[in-house]
Amino acid sequence: MAIELIDYSKCTHCRICVDSCPLAVFRVMGRRVHIAYGEDCQACFLCEIDCPEGAIYVGPERGTIGGRPIPLPY
């Protein structure tokens, strides 16, 4: 999986990551930001780059189509 975790010991609930994500992977429930659609993450790292607290970790693996691997040309 591309996006792996939000470290809630560092997260200040500023919601910058919510606005960073082109694919609307995050949702806010109460005060907390959740990874609601992690299977749609494209591993573009914008949320991790924008997070002022360093609270997000995105893994290097290629994203998927809702969990399905993307076909390659050969």
Binding site: G67, I70, P73
Partner: peptide
């Protein structure tokens, strides 16, 4: 689901005899 059908569509288009 959209994901299911998107994956099928990709497997029709992306192979190199169609793309390249």
């Amino acid at each position: 689901t959209p994901d299911e059908v998107t994956a099928k569509l990709q497997s029709i288009i992306i192979p190199y005899p169609v793309t390249y």
